[in-house]
Design a protein around this nucleic acid. Sequence first.
RNA 1: GGCUCCGUAGCUUAAUGGAUAGAGCAUCUGACUACGGAUCAGAAGGUUAGAGGUUCGAGUCCUCUCGGAGUCACCA
Length: 611
Amino acid sequence: MDMTSTIQNVVSDAVNFLYNHTVAPETVQVQPTDSDFSGDYTVVVFPFVKAGRKSPDVIGAEIGAFAQEKLPFISGFNVIKGFLNLELSTAYWQAFLADMLTKSDFGRLPRNGRKVMVEYSSPNTNKPLHLGHVRNCLLGSSCSRILEAVGYEVVKVQVINDRGVAICKSMLAWQKWGEGKTPANSGQKGDHLVGDFYVLFEQKSREEYEVWQQTDAARAIYFEKRKPDQSEPAFFKDYKNKWFNDYSTLGAEVRQMLLQWEAGDPETVALWKQMNGWVYAGFDQTYANLGVAFDKLYYESDTYLLGKDIVEEGLGKSVFYRKPDGSVWVNLTDAGHDEKVVLRADGTSVYITQDLGTARMRYRDFGCERMVYVVADEQNYHFAVLFEVLKRLGEPYAEGLHHLSYGLVELPTGRMKTREGTVVDADDLMEEVQRIAREQALERTDNLASEEDLRKIGLGALKFFMIKVNPKKKMIFNPEESVDLQGQTGPYIQYSYVRINGLMQRVAREGIDLAPAAQYLDIQPQEKELLKALHQFPATIQTAANDYDPSHIANYCYALAKSYHRFWHDLSIFQAPNPEARAFRLELSKGVAVALKTGMALLGIDMPEKM
RNA sequence: GGCUCCGUAGCUUAAUGGAUAGAGCAUCUGACUACGGAUCAGAAGGUUAGAGGUUCGAGUCCUCUCGGAGUCACCA
């Protein structure tokens, strides 16, 4: 049993015994003692004041005495303003450190036999991955690792949006102006190549629109349909979609191509496969570089027709209803939402139909009782509706659905826009942070890092920067700050690990005996701080898993590294006053290294050997 | 306009309803001829947007106001 539960139980017993009052153990508030006070764990005694009918200080003292008598490892306590601070014995801390060092998987829980699916990344195949995908991937893969660490079997999936108008635009542009260009004959990464044709299409389309705006037909439409006082540019800006659908030659060609694709036209399908193939090869490279992976891919081209059977079923269960025109709806007004269409009058699917079908398909594929969707907060409403509908349909996994909603990544100049060329490309970004890490390393006279270590440092800076903030916060991405290597950063944490790595090499070189560590009695405040932090590691992982929030682990790692740097500065290790102290400090350092490496690995950040 | 989310130091941020709101950046001042200075110590910087309320206790919960964002498609 963990320390918090142990203390909760004894306090519950104490209140029952001393004041004849029943308190459920899990409601007892126990927290690590704030570093400004002496003690290791703190119990809040205010809730027992009424039952004890004495002052908080007296009650605290009575519960403290009871706990000290029942639990041999409590060596003392103090009560300050209604807070009972319990102190654990040196023997307890010694045993804790020795025990954690025997476990290579310290902090991780045993398998719980349960399955969870995590969906993340979910790119479109018409352009390369960008900064937004990077945040999504880091959150998704990190959450997967965290859930795995607390015992789940995790199935990582991505939905590939490989069909529709967007990819047809790239295909058409390539067909018209591509001149046979391929990744092989141009040396360009496939996803970038396809993305360039998408941009080219948009450019050609814009040109066509500008020419059209000068025609008599266009001017007639403007004068007929403009709102009062609406300028011509403003009108045509709003009119763009309508124009593309009704008048554009390129628009007609794209729609024709989409129809051919849907009809299974061999030539169109072959081109689609070829260009998507280029994109997948590019994505694989980016994912590998970023350190993320998937167990299963769902292609939208396979799933976009799913969900119609569920609509039929929902009609039978009266969850849905049919309007006179034949379209099918769900009324969620009693849940605070609107009415939503789930099937068009012509019987074709909409976005949510597909998601209903995909959810059930995934459950059949893997039987996960929980499913996590890592999707930006623009889609909060969509997922609220989706989950509500699945609940009403009585799907067995409906209670285990979670939308891991995160804030969009914006630049200091505002939202990224493809059209304005302000999109930060994922590949460029990763290359840039590594370049800066290398540059900074070369400025140091004692540069010891290998190429591989420099890669870890650069990516460590980027990943930590993105994952240290609460996912739901909108993020302003400042490229300069993202590659900071000092302060609250990935490299700061890596540096503490590298320091320990250096110590261990010397231990091995000089054959230093660590056995006397167990005889060390005079634990210093800086050492206690580290022990207390290590003690909290398992609970921190659990909290991160409960909240689907990797930033808890990032903050933990930073705090632990900070404590370690202070310890390093304040206390000599090899010049320790005696062999017991030296051995203990080395063992403690080993423990810190284990927690840091495990914690950072949960964030997808590797530790360099030297830097 | 309806619904949802957000507002903490100049900037970026932390804080299961608990103690004196904790860090980093930037600014200023310092640090051992000792294990690696990508480090450490210190100074300064806060009416937690504002006003009420609940509570022994509120940055956190409730109500209102102000400011910002997202969303309200038979798009995905």
